[in-house]
Structures are given as structure tokens and as C-alpha cells.
Nucleic acid binder design. Sequence first.
DNA 1: TATAAAGGTGAATCCGCAC
DNA 2: AGTGCGGATTCACCTTTAT
Lengths: 265, 265
Amino acid sequence: MEINSIIHGDCIEELKKIPDDSIDLIFADPPYNMQLKNALYRPNNTKVDGVNDEWDKFASFSEYDDFCVLWLKECKRILKNTGSIWVIGSYHNIFRVGNIMLNLGFWILNDITWHKTNPMPNFMGTRFTNATETLLWCSKGEQFKKYTFNHKMMKKYNGGKQMTSVWKIGLCTGEERIKGEDGKKAHSTQKPEELLKRLILSTSKQGDIILDPFFGTGTTGAAAKKLKRSYIGIEKEENYISLAKKRIDAIENFFPEADWKEDER
Amino acid sequence: MEINSIIHGDCIEELKKIPDDSIDLIFADPPYNMQLKNALYRPNNTKVDGVNDEWDKFASFSEYDDFCVLWLKECKRILKNTGSIWVIGSYHNIFRVGNIMLNLGFWILNDITWHKTNPMPNFMGTRFTNATETLLWCSKGEQFKKYTFNHKMMKKYNGGKQMTSVWKIGLCTGEERIKGEDGKKAHSTQKPEELLKRLILSTSKQGDIILDPFFGTGTTGAAAKKLKRSYIGIEKEENYISLAKKRIDAIENFFPEADWKEDER
DNA sequence: TATAAAGGTGAATCCGCAC
DNA sequence: AGTGCGGATTCACCTTTAT
């Protein structure tokens, strides 16, 4: 198991090769199964460049569920008893994912709300602006109580008050958003590094091994390197891998707060 | 079917007596199945008076699921095609409830985050402060697109900007919290009226029939009366019913904004 | 160079009717 | 069921262009 590397291959097949009880932290950003059917236009008639990737297409709930059971089962197997797992999703998929995680025996520690400061409005006025995504933070099971949680660090990070389960963070835009050679966004769902920074700081220690089975353009790897953790990524698309490698290699500066003292254990 | 009344009886049995396609809006605050095992103490050694009621006890996920399938099925049957349903829950149950609703064919319109301004902190420092509950707002199915949504009203309510799926509202405390004869809180999970006000204003019209299958101390009835909607409540415990009746009968003043013009249809 | 205006865009289950 | 068309509909933030 080579650390600080990106494995090219199918998520489930590659997860199967990872030894039992060997991973400290897992962050998973699986396909959401958005089920988009029609094009959406803004009031000024421009078309919304939505998620239309092949990797987000599933034939049915049942097919999506089967897929999630397989990768989540492997995640549980390879997670250390002191480890924990984060899974991000939207209302399209998080209720299916959450249900499966409970059935597999994961123990929910928090449901974190990523409150987006700049979400896309609802142009048609048919719903409330969908302004959140949900992160499920779970331990391996109810009986495993020694998961890492740097409570004091996060209290300091939050200006002296205990951090809550609502995280107000902007979308990944501007300089941070990885562009392809055509100048357009390379990945349709790149996450902001601040999101990864918070969960890595709070629920892992320096030197820990962080696994991301849906690595994409490597936000998890970038944040891990800046915070002095190791990472293992699994990604199916070579294009994403090459962009991720370039991105992570370019990192020389660390988050200035990376030397914050971790909670004693 | 008598409107503006509280039915005393078992939720599922009483739901079965309600005719098909007869309800405009459902608000359901089901048991959360919190699975609290041990007493919880604050740092100063006082005991936290949590939810420990008989009605919140289920033997297993499966038993809880079976219960939810039954009452949610009935809700779908009695809902008008132009109607919609709200279900509130926490991370203990909302993933099971959401999964079941999807399986039954409900169509999620929003997952609303109730962001509590004054949540109970995590005393032990073992998790992030759990500062939210989740409301699922669903239409009867993907094909039913004429659900009521007063978009313009809510935009006005929100100071001119489209309302988002994050609702910052305080816990139900102080004067609003119904007390029993012993001066203690009468119901362990009473919801703030502001929460009900928002969802009733946004997704129903004056004169609509609103059903609450877990009526408790009648927050839904109180908000419905103030906003000139009709209500039907179902509640198992007579003590809650008498408190709810007293509460609703006492209402003479309406929310000052109750005369806001609804969206034209 | 500084400021202002204009343009682009984000994990989106986003219209309703007539033919 | 599919197509076509009239009409109603958006917020925060960032980049580019204009003044």
C-alpha cells in the first residue's frame, strides 16, 4: 500500500486490495445520482452547465444503493477502530447513503451542514434556494469510542467557541477551481479546500493516512499535504489524476495553522 | 372528517379513516428513535432532561422503519395532488425516514436545515455541537408539479431576496414553551411556532386543511389558526390533547402578516 | 492607476399549456 | 409522449472590460 499516491482504477476493486484496519480517515465524495433530465436556463437565457457526467448516471435507486453498499462495506473493513469516515452528499443521495451506513453499523457522530454562502438560486421560483450539502461523520461502530477528535483545536479554530455542525463556506471558485486546457472547470463538482481542511484538522492527526475513494482532482490530497497528513487516492479517470498530481506536486506552502497543537490523547 | 379538531387515537389507525386526496398539507414530527441509553450529565453534574419518553422507543431499525412505512403510506394516500408534506427529524432518524419517503415515491423538493441559534453544546467535547434538525419537504411524486409554493410571499418575508433552505430559528423556550401543572415543560420536543409559520405560509393557502399526525401540544394547530388555515391533529396522549386544546382556544390574535397576499395561481 | 460597469457561473432532481 | 412556444424567473462572487 503506497502512501501519497493516486491509484488508477475502479473504486470498489481497488478498495478490496487495501488491508483491514489500516486507514485513519476516509473522505468520500461519491456520485450524487442527480437524475437531471432537462436543460436549465437562467432568466437571461444562458444555459446552466450542470452535472452531466457519465459517472453520475445510475439506472435506478436500487443500482445506486448496490454500488454504495459495496464501497461502504470495504471502507468499514479497512478503517482502523480509532478512525472515522466522512461522506458528502446532497438531498439526492444522502438519505440513501445515510440509511446504508446505518445498516452497515456505522455510528453517526454528526451530520454536518455545509451552508454555502453563494449557492445558485432557484431561477424558476419553484422551491427554496438549495443552499446546503450534508456531510456525515461516522465512527466505525457504536462500540468504537476512541475516534480522533481534536475538540480544543477546533474550538480555537472557531474563535474560542465550540464549533457547531453548521459550516458556512463558499463554493470552490476563482483561482482555487482547477481548469482544464480549454480554460473551463476540469471537474464539475470540485469541493472547497476549506471543507477538507476542517474535517482533516478535526478528525485526524499529523502523519495519519487519509483515503479518498473518489479522488477527482485531488482536493483531499492537497489539503492532506498542507496539513502534514498522508493520502491515498483512488480515481477512475486518468484526466483527473494527471491534474491532481500536478496540483499536489505544486504545493510547497502549508496552511499557516498547520502547526496548531493537537489535543493530547 | 371534522376540521379544526384533534383526534384521540393511534396515528396509523386514525390516518386510515381519512379519505383519499383530501389533505392540502401535512406536517409530521414523528418519534426520532434517539436510542439514548445512559443518562447525560452537564459539566456541573446536573442531569440533562433529554427525550426519554415511551413513545420514542423502538426495538430496532427495522421496527422503526415498519412504523414509518405505515404512516407515510397513509400520508401519501390522503394527500391531494396539489399538496405537499413536511417531515422533521434529526440525524438519528431522518436518513431512515428520507430513504423510506424516496422508496414510496415522494419527490424531495428541499431538505431544509433548521439552524438552531441556541443549541445545546456538546458537553463532553467529543463531537461538534449538533446545531440542526432537518425538514424534508416533498411533493406527492415527481409527476405532481402543481404543489403550492408562495415564492413571492417568501421572498418578501425574507426581505426581498429568495429564501434559502437554511432557516435560522431559535429553540422553543420561554413563554412559548408549554408548561404542565408542575411548571415543567409539557412536551420534550415542542417545536417553535416560527418553524411552522414559515412552512405553512410558504406551502399552503388560506383555508387549506393541514394535517399533523403527531400533534403533541398543538404547535401546528396554533400556527394554522393564526394563519387562517384549518387543521386536523392526531394524538395518542390525552394529556397533550387537553393542553393543545387550551392553547389553540386561547388564540385570538393572528400573526400580523397573516393578510399577506398569496401568490396568484 | 483606480473605479465602475458588465459579464460569467455554481452538485439543479427549476414552467405550463396547446397541439 | 413528445414538441413548440409564450412567459416568468436570480444571488453572491469573481473576472473582464470600460471609463
